[in-house]
């Protein structure tokens, strides 16, 4: 089963890398979302997933009865999912602000517009020069 999951991880990461390497910032963020999912699945697969036995200790016992799923990668991935959400949200808002300020989502145009000299009163981030 790991072989199949590995192939799926490969597909997700390939898609994510392709999107990340695009000129369009929105596509870049979509790539980021995909990448975070792909990496989570990669970690999960590396932990040798098994079916049907969640990592819980049954009531009345002090240890899991029989083999249960690997809890360690699950704990790692749980926080990774939430952190990934934080990253995605931040990237989306950053993209929104970039667009509002510079009027484009194309990485090369962004570069060109940021490089342009701005009036002294408004240097990029809105700090007003003395």
């Amino acid at each position: 089963m790991e072989v199949v999951l590995a192939l799926v991880v490969g597909v997700i990461i390939a898609g994510a890398l392709y999107l990340v390497m695009q000129r369009n910032l929105l596509r870049f963020v979509f790539g980021l979302i995909l990448l975070s999912g792909g990496v989570n699945l990669l970690l999960f697969t590396a932990g040798r997933p098994i079916r049907g036995a969640p990592p819980l200790v049954p009531y009345g016992l002090s240890e899991p009865a029989g083999a249960v799923a690997n809890a360690l990668p699950q704990a790692l991935i749980l926080t990774a999912i939430v952190i990934g959400f934080g990253l995605t949200a931040f990237a989306l808002v950053l993209l929104l602000r970039a667009y509002e300020r510079l009027g484009t989502l194309s990485t090369d145009e962004l570069t060109a517009r940021v490089a342009e000299p701005r009036p002294i009163a408004d240097r990029g981030d809105g700090e007003v020069a003395p």
């Binding site: 790991e2 999951l5 590995a6 192939l7 991880v9 490969g10 597909v11 997700i12 990461i13 390939a14 898609g15 890398l17 792909g38 990669l42 697969t45 590396a46």
Partner: peptide
């Protein structure tokens, strides 16, 4: 890159 990750996994 995708192939690499699949292979590594």
């Amino acid at each position: 890159g995708g192939a690499l990750f699949a292979g590594l996994l």
